[in-house]
Write a protein that binds this DNA or RNA. Structure first.
Ligand code: ZN
Ligand code: ZN
Ligand code: ZN
Ligand code: ZN
Lengths: 132, 132
DNA sequence: ATCGCACACGTTATAGCATAACGCAATTGA
DNA sequence: TCAATTGCGTTATGCTATAACGTGTGCGAT
C-alpha cells in the first residue's frame, strides 16, 4: 500500500497540494492546473482518489478540502488515527496523532463490536496567531 | 442557549429527523416535507441551522447528513465533544461521548494555544449486525 | 398609535462539490 | 496475440449549500 511512482496527473495534483500553504478544494486544484492541461473535475478527483489511497494526501471532511500529508516520505496510514486542527481564519492545518485517543476510540468500537474503517477527527477554531 | 419553542418549519424538520432511523440529507428531508408545503432547500437549511444551534440535531460532516440528537430533552452541547459511529451498510448512527478523548484533544489544543470552536469525531465502518 | 427592529418565511437564482457513463490508449501478463 | 487492468479525456448530470430579494408578523420604545 506504499506509494508507487505517481502518474503525471497524480504528480501534478500532489505538487499543487504540497506547495500550498493550506488545504485546497478539488476545484481550486483544477483551476491551478488549467495551464497544465486540466479541463475537468474528474481529472482532479481521480488523482486525489489514488493519492488518498497511498496515504500521501488527506481529505478534510468538514471543509471539503484536501491537504498534503505532513509526514513526507512516511506512510501516514501506519501512524494510527490522524487528527487535524484547522484554523478558520487563516486556513492553516496542523496534523497530529494521539495514540491515547486512538485507544479510547478503539476500546469503544470493540465494546460495541463496531468494525471501524475510517475515522475522522477535525478540530475547527483559531490558531495561536489568529486568536490573538 | 437551551431550545426555545420551535417554529412550524423547525418542528417539521425535527420531527422528520426524529422519526427517521438514520441520518438524512437536507434534500431528503425536503422531499419528505413537500406534502407539508416545503418547496425549496433553504426552508430546510434555515430550520437545520437553528436546530443545530439549539443542540437538538447534529451534522455528520463525513456524509453531509443530519441526525436528531440521541439525548432528547438534554442539551447535548453540555456533554463535551460528541462522537459518532456510522455504519456504512445500514446507515445507523451511534452517538457517544468520551471525556478522556475530550481531555486528550483539549490538552493538545492547549499546548498549541489553538482555540477550538467545534470538533468533529466520526467513525465510519460496519455495525455489529452488518459486520457479521 | 406607529415607528423601527428582529425574525421567520417564501421564491428564484446561483455557486460549489462530486460522480456517471462513454470511449480511447498504453501496459501487462498469460 | 489476446484479455484484463489502469489511466486518461470529455460530456453530462446529480447532489449539496448559499446569495439576494421581498413579505409578513410580533413586539418594545417613542
Ligand atoms: Zn498524514
Ligand atoms: Zn490562523
Ligand atoms: Zn447529541
Ligand atoms: Zn449496520
Amino acid at each position: 500500500m506504499s506509494a508507487p511512482a505517481l502518474t503525471k496527473n497524480q504528480a501534478l495534483v500532489f505538487d499543487v497540494l504540497e506547495k500550498a500553504d493550506g488545504p485546497l478544494s478539488a476545484y481550486t486544484i483544477l483551476d491551478k492546473l488549467r495551464d497544465h492541461g486540466f479541463r475537468a473535475p474528474l481529472q482532479v478527483y481521480r488523482a486525489l482518489e489514488k493519492l488518498l489511497e497511498y496515504g500521501v494526501v488527506h481529505r478534510l471532511e468538514s471543509i471539503n478540502s484536501f491537504v498534503a500529508c505532513a509526514h513526507p516520505g512516511e506512510n501516514c496510514h501506519s501512524h494510527g488515527i490522524v487528527a487535524f486542527a484547522i484554523c478558520e481564519s487563516c486556513g492553516q492545518v496542523m496534523e497530529f496523532h494521539d495514540h491515547e485517543v486512538d485507544h479510547r476510540l478503539m476500546d469503544w468500537t470493540k465494546s460495541k463490536k463496531f468494525k471501524a474503517e475510517k475515522t475522522t477527527i477535525e478540530i475547527r477554531g483559531l490558531c495561536e496567531a489568529c486568536a490573538a
